[in-house]
Design a protein around this nucleic acid. Structure first.
Lengths: 373, 373
DNA sequence: TTGAAAGCGTTACCAC
DNA sequence: GTGGTAACGCTTTCAA
């Protein structure tokens, strides 16, 4: 550690610009060994070599028109010659903004999050913003991020996916002057893009009801969870609403909750199918879970949709390949839209539609069919 | 813009620490409006309030043992009181390292890249490094990144996925003292993790040969492409080698190249199937392309694997659901391993296995079968 | 149109 | 143990 700092400091010092690299042996040939200073040019080097002040170089860098064409081209030439590129860090510190957007997302590993991320990346592409990814995979990490990221210098703004925010957290971000945009979660004081999960749950139930099913079960996340996710609960809510409205009773044993995981869903389904009066249809709170449901049914020797109809939620990438009937939500678009929202605020523009509810769509494929009598 | 800078500047000035936020109207309620200065505490504030020097605060911050317990706790208390968090930017500038890892990847949108990214995120999780994502979606962008990222301050090191590097580029990164780790592409002077694409191509061909196929076609990427990708070409190479070794001739018309895209693969396959002597089996250079092959075959009214056997490469997430026979490469693991490689170098350790070739595996599912006579 | 100098928020060195 | 101060590499006044 000592040694490392020493080396780092060497790199930083701008005294002598000679650089000597050697491969000491096979074992450290991937390390950067330097005898003297590294040759990374700074604005001062450019200024000196071009015979101007650093201010002028900075002006050239920022396309400030108050520089004579002659001076500008001379400075530009020196920059090119020295392969100069400004320090992002120093610019950030000086300007108070970094041109970086942070994305705070739980379970980056889940297909739906990846899909949203794609949308974000696409929206950011045309902007000059970099993307820093903060993957939340424990409640502790969520807390830690919300502590340490509350500074203007990690990113100019953050896109937060699926994580509900407390009022005081929002207030603190605002206090730190950090713009936020929410995806898949709402907060009055923030721009966001969401879907109507309750309506989605209703749509799923209605589809099953329309097919003649009456013994319909639910497999979803824990209603209470450490992150405060409500998607699964809301979908269940809408689902139950629709059933109740149709006069269909749902015994408590027909509602299974567990971690958002294919294998857990598999296990829950196995329990469901072992019930004396087993359901003829299952609504899974997500496609990932629906996949587990399908596997469990097949493992139990049931055919789908003959013996069991299954409907999921999200329409993730694999859904069409599995032939999964599902409620489609525009994942990619939510990412793209969320990023645009943040970009709007960052560019001092006001989002035209700061609170957007994306449309849902029933996609009927091959895992649901009319109830066989 | 003027206005924005003004605001930014206000935020930066550390004079008066009072802060007043107001929602001027609905239309700018998402913007941060401040009358005076923002209250973001700096190390100087802490020092002043705790009645110590900034040096001492810095020592507390960095767990330097040369601070008396009494002073330390006092400083800590003030930090807590003022909700202080150090500036990542300033630390980076001062220390010469940012604790950030950059990932330069082409087509972040492709499933295989996403899978590798998962592995990277997982490896980085336990480290204290942040992840900055640089998505390359054009040769121009590749060039731009390789220009502007050649600084020590965007990231402490980079993980480069699938992008072949020129010797001079490697030299320039080294000159800038920026450690690199490569995934899915090799370079003698750099640590990397790859697979043996030629062997993979051979395995695919052999599987088809073993099933009795003799009229075997290939669908892959353009051999020459703007990024210099060689995976598809190498797989084709191994494929042809195996066929030749088995005494099986492959007419040029059986080799189709196009963009790495499902729809393009679809089109190429349609051409293939329209041939007077149409192939009984197709090797697609990637699963994504295999998907297109399958769609084309189905569109042409052929059954798989009855009329046509299809084998892919990669084993992406959807492959099992489609029942796709494929050559599996450990995508996730390549990401995890690549990140570890970089972390090793960053921590001044030498990677135990700097050049690793990950194993390939034939996964037989439902898209290949013995040739029907 | 330009140069000099004062920030930006840290770390690290040098005294005491 | 601790305080001051010079970096780090830029931007942005303020004069000239």
């Amino acid at each position: 550690m000592k040694r490392f700092q020493y080396r780092t400091k060497l790199i930083a010092k701008p005294l002598d610009k000679t650089c000597a690299i050697r491969y000491t042996s096979f074992w450290n040939r991937f390390h950067i060994e330097e005898d003297r200073e590294t040759a990374m040019a700074t604005i001062a080097d450019i200024a000196a070599k071009a015979g101007v002040g650093v201010g002028t170089v900075s002006r050239v860098l920022n396309n400030n028109p108050a520089v004579s064409e002659k001076t500008r081209s001379r400075v530009l030439a020196v920059m090119h010659e020295l392969d100069y590129h400004p320090s992002h860090l120093a610019q950030g510190l000086s300007r108070g903004r970094t041109f970086t957007v942070g994305v705070i997302a739980p379970f980056f590993t889940h297909p739906s999050v990846v899909e949203r991320l794609r949308g974000i990346v696409e929206s950011l592409r045309v902007s000059q913003y970099d993307l820093v990814l903060f993957n939340v995979d424990s409640p502790a990490q969520r807390a830690e991020y919300f502590q340490t990221l509350m500074r203007r210098d990690r990113a100019d703004g953050f896109i937060i996916i699926s994580l509900p925010m407390q009022d005081d957290e929002v207030a603190r971000f605002r206090h730190a002057a950090i713009p936020l945009a929410l995806i898949d979660v709402a907060h009055t004081d923030l721009p966001y893009v969401i879907i109507d999960n309750i309506a989605g749950g209703r749509m799923a139930a209605q589809h099953l009801l329309d097919l003649g099913h009456r013994r319909i079960a639910f497999v979803g996340d824990h209603h209470r969870n450490a992150y405060g996710f409500t998607a699964s609960r809301d979908r269940c809510q809408g689902f139950l609403d629709a059933l109740t409205a149709a006069g269909v009773a749902t015994p408590a044993t027909y509602r299974k909750e567990g971690q958002h995981d294919r294998h857990i869903a598999h296990r829950l389904t196995t329990e469901l199918l072992a019930l004396p009066e087993r359901p003829t249809a299952i609504f899974a709170a997500s496609d990932t879970q629906a996949l587990g449901v399908i596997e469990a049914a097949q493992a139990a020797g049931l055919t789908i949709p003959g013996d069991l109809s299954v409907i999921g939620f999200d329409d993730i990438e694999v859904a069409p390949y599995v032939g999964l009937t599902t409620i489609r939500q525009p994942l990619y678009q939510s990412g793209a839209r969320g990023a645009t929202l943040l970009l709007d605020v960052l560019s001092d523009a006001t989002p035209d539609v700061p609170h957007e509810v994306l449309p849902l769509e029933l996609v009927v494929r091959r895992t649901t069919s009319p109830l066989a009598h």
